[in-house]
Nucleic acid binder design. Sequence first.
RNA 1: GCGCCUGUAGCUCAGUAGGAUAGAGCAACGGCCUUCUAAGCCGUGUGCCCGGGGUUCGAAUCCCUGCAGGCGCGCCA
Length: 558
Amino acid sequence: MNYTLSQVKTEIIDEIAASLKKSIEKELFQLDEIPEILLETPREKQFGDFSTNIAMQLPKLTKKSPRYIAEAIVENYDKSKTHVEKIDIAGPGFINFTLKEDWIYGILEDVKNTGSDYGKTEYGRGRKVNVEFISANPTGPMHMGNARGGAIGDGMAQVLSWAGFEVVKEFYINDAGNQIEKFGQSLEARYLQINGVAVEFPEDGYKGEDITIHMNEFTEAHGNKYVNFDSRERREVLIAYALEKNIKKIEEDLKGYGIEYDVWFRESELHKSNAVLEIVEELKERGHTYEKDGATWFKATEFGCEKDDVLIRNNDIPTYFAADIAYHVNKFRTRGFDWGINVWGADHHGHVARIKAALDALGLKGDNLDVILMQLVRLVRKGETARMSKRQGNMVTLSDLIDEVGKDAARFFFNLRSPESHFDFDLDLAVEESNENPVFYVQYAHARISSILRQVEEDLGKIDADFTLLKEKEEKELIRILAEFPFEIITSVEKMDPSRITRYAMDVASNFHSFYNACRVRNDDLKLMKARVELVSAVKVVLKNITEILGIKAPERM
RNA sequence: GCGCCUGUAGCUCAGUAGGAUAGAGCAACGGCCUUCUAAGCCGUGUGCCCGGGGUUCGAAUCCCUGCAGGCGCGCCA
């Protein structure tokens, strides 16, 4: 594809560098090497299209004043080699570049030619990225935190894929370990109670209604024959039954949320294949473990962690940590991912350093793993914070949420804020204001354009599109914002924050609505009409591409 | 006690690889529908950027320190 904006910027940067070299040759000042030159977009339009602060970076190295350096750069800058119309020096030494009027029209050609691919780049050069997100415990339904993690994780995966990475979306199923143990005890207690055996429900068991429903259905299907079974065997049967139901439900709920995974990875497989014990063995061989109190410990402190961690408990059962190491080794070593991104709740942040340490200890690069720590969602209802717990069974589930506010609004809402922002989800407000949700603002822009395009009956096919007719302020600003799309995607990758796209979507919609109120697409001047039809078509393409990334609908009508 | 995250307009938040006059949405107020969807547009104003020091030509942004809130510090996951 043709990166208009990128080309324009690169040209200018190259020419600044050339100008610096010339200045050095003319001995206007001395400089050993040309530093990195950054072009930024000034906030104020009066400062031109791009500016650089390079002249203010150099006084220390050259012993000359910023303005002196700026003047030298401007003097030796060859405008004919770039799209620059005008260069000014302003303030303490900023160099501001104003582009020739016509450069922006190339953007429209670009969008028109690339269509549903507009925004895609080769930035990632095909590197393999694994994005693991949600990975909710399969002991019950998903909650609001999972909903946020889903929106962030899926958005991240999309953005990576658009930026030219090869992406695998993955759900890690914790179908082993202590939680499953408790899950089994809870199921068993309910089963026995339902079948007339008076047993106490475990204190820290799962008290949710879903457990009871599972066991009622199970009893209907299989009767009470497991009452007389050995407890261990009985639990196995009940767990297997309820777990599959839960996983199935999770998969279905996520589908309804617009998320489909490439890989569902089961923790239990790592135990079955002996991968967990093998990895502990390898750590032992590499000398990164020791025995204490009958347990096997990983020397995490050797890698800068605050404390060591247990790999194998004194009852010979490996910890979740050991399994997680094996899991990540599987990602990087077995499956060869270049990069791993995990979306975790902030309550897991203590786990980040030690998993990276373990990877380092195994000769892999812990730095190849990035964890997006999202702050937890606090549910506010009737002005009060609602405490939620899967075990207490008092949570608002993902499917409740979708029922109440809709998939699009939920996806959009959870990607409106950066992952690290603490997030109060006011349920009353979300329901009440669902019609004023910003998602409609974006979708409305798309529907409006669709409507216009439906109404264009004139035969414009023979008219050549002359974009230079688009001279209004609103038209030019609208075009400029379209140019930012590929860069916004790349920045989202760099900052690991897909919520940038949501905010960009609002920007595009806002610029479109302003244009809409200032300029008529359908008008008597057919040539102008043709140009505007092409313009709004380009906006429609970008909006559509954005909604693909965000996992929401782009309605033709509203 | 120690570690991580957060603290910006009345509210929810952008801006934090140092840059020019700190922004947006919501809320409030006033305008705009005989013309392509008013779920829209235009206008009006608000800030001890949590406090205090420091680094710098320049700090919301970096460093130190204090305060407030969230989370973590298990042979739970």
